[in-house]
Simulated assay, not measured.
Amino acid sequence: MSEQFAEDQKVHGVPSIEHDGDILLSARGVTVGFGPKIILQDLDLDVRKGEILGFVGGSGTGKSVLMRAILGLTPKRTGTIKVFGYDLAKASEQERKTVERRWGVLFQQGALFSSLTVKQNIQVPMREHLNLSPRLMDELAGLKLELVGLPQDAADKFPSELSGGMVKRASLARALALDPDLVFLDEPTSGLDPIGAAAFDKLIANLSETLGLTVYMVTHDLDSLHSICDRIAVLGEKRVLVIGTIDEMMKNEHPWVMSYFRGERALRRF
């Protein structure tokens, strides 16, 4: 743990980072930049097994950048990222594949392949990691559709034929294709109306409980943070400023945290 992070924890009353066996994802001293611009610097974070962690921060602070760095899509300059106990920078190709089979990802806007049907999109991870018959993949895709609350006739539709809420659910079905232990959700309720967003939150909470999923969720949605997140991590000043429950966020005295959780807009909402 960096000395600066430890000091900030004392100042803002945040519990110390844990080191027990319940930590599924651990980041230490992570720095990410593009050219001369540093986006994240000396960042530390733990994600506990079985929790729904909400990850928030101002626009452009690097929330999606950190998620992509964890996934290996954006290179980090320094630091260590461990998932399921594997140091991803030192993992062999086989170990990396093992890790990737145990996580699923829902990107912003869904990121479905426009030229593939919903069923074919769900089957992409199966084709990459498994050796299954077409019939079995069809059956599994149907099960995933049912799991996320989509009708079976959605299987043969293309993304352009779906509503925004259906795109989110289809993308979640693809993220669940390999029965992962850890799911990354990048702004899962953005673009949805309040009713659709609430239904999606309920779906995430139910899946987490019934499947034992650990959920890493980047979001701006205050309703999601209040209703389904076990803990919330706040990104700012290129690092995790504070981490804790919603009650702890409401009591925190950091200026940005106060503005976000106890500002005029937030108080009108709750």
Rank of each mutant, 00 (worst) to 15 (best):
S160T: 08
Q152S: 03
D156C: 08
V124I: 11
H129A: 12
L53K: 08
E139Y: 02
V167E: 05
G57I: 09
V167W: 03
L162R: 01
A89M: 00
S171C: 08
H129I: 09
R135H: 06
G54M: 07
T80H: 04
V47L: 15
Q108G: 09
I38D: 00
W103A: 01
I122M: 01
L150V: 03
I81P: 00
G164Y: 01
K97R: 14
A177D: 12
D138N: 11
V99K: 03
D138E: 15
G110A: 08
W103T: 01
L112R: 13
L116V: 09
L147S: 05
R169T: 05
T74N: 01
S114N: 15
K37F: 00
P151H: 08
G149V: 08
I81A: 11
G104T: 05
K90L: 14
L88A: 04
E95C: 09
G110I: 05
G60T: 08
S115G: 09
R48Q: 09
V99I: 12
V118A: 01
F55M: 02
A91N: 13
M137V: 02
G104L: 07
F113N: 00
T61G: 06
R169N: 06
K37L: 11
E128I: 15
D138V: 11
G72D: 07
V83E: 06
S92C: 10
I39L: 13
N131D: 15
L112F: 05
E51M: 02
G165W: 01
Q152E: 15
L66N: 09
F55S: 08
Q108P: 10
P125Q: 03
A173L: 09
L88V: 15
R135L: 10
Q120N: 10
A155P: 04
V99Y: 10
L116N: 00
R68I: 03
G164F: 05
G104K: 01
L40S: 06
G50A: 04
